[in-house]
Simulated assay, not measured.
Amino acid sequence: MTKEAIATNNAPAALGPYSQAVKANGTVYVSGQLPIDPATGEFAGTDIQSQTRQSLTNIQAILQEAGLDLSNVVKTTVLLDNIDDFAAMNEVYAEFFTGVTPARAAFEVAAIPKGALVEIEAVAVAE
């Protein structure tokens, strides 16, 4: 198996000893993306909509670096600080994924790094 780290300055740097994404055998595994704007190093906003939009924008940037886009995504996992934000998150999510949408799991978790409201990870496959 060959592994390749994927990294871009158009998404926030990893906060620890992990890659923004890893490509292995044609599949790209994107690490959980916090809603950090890479230009400022700060959250894109304080509401679930703006944070969801930034997390997905970060995923787009990482996929672009790997030569893919959101249409290649087959699975996502959404971590929410509060499950009551599910509907509002889902509205923004639907702006990014159309047609055959990825399989998805969404969970409320006890805490997300840096106090974020959402974190999203993705798996994409090259066609």
Score class of each variant (00 low, 15 high):
36 I>L: 15
6 I>F: 00
23 K>G: 00
113 P>N: 09
15 L>E: 14
93 Y>E: 06
110 A>F: 06
15 L>S: 15
31 S>M: 08
123 V>C: 06
119 E>A: 14
82 N>R: 11
2 T>K: 14
43 F>N: 04
26 G>E: 01
51 Q>C: 06
13 A>W: 07
42 E>F: 11
55 S>P: 06
43 F>C: 05
119 E>I: 02
47 D>I: 08
57 T>V: 07
21 A>Q: 02
5 A>I: 13
94 A>K: 12
2 T>N: 15
40 T>Q: 10
116 A>M: 07
103 A>V: 12
80 L>Q: 01
101 T>G: 11
18 Y>W: 11
46 T>R: 12
39 A>V: 11
16 G>D: 15
47 D>T: 14
42 E>L: 14
1 M>E: 11
127 E>A: 14
53 R>M: 03
116 A>E: 03
63 L>Q: 00
118 V>S: 05
113 P>M: 10
84 D>P: 01
101 T>H: 07
35 P>A: 13
8 T>G: 03
52 T>S: 14
18 Y>T: 07
8 T>Q: 04
118 V>N: 06
30 V>S: 03
64 Q>N: 13
67 G>N: 01
67 G>P: 00
39 A>R: 15
100 V>R: 13
59 I>Q: 02
73 V>H: 01
99 G>W: 10
28 V>I: 15
124 A>I: 08
89 M>A: 11
60 Q>C: 08
33 Q>M: 15
28 V>Q: 00
83 I>D: 09
21 A>H: 01
39 A>E: 14
4 E>T: 14
10 N>P: 01
12 P>E: 12
69 D>V: 03
82 N>D: 15
7 A>D: 07
69 D>L: 04
19 S>Q: 15
72 N>R: 03
108 E>Y: 05
90 N>F: 12
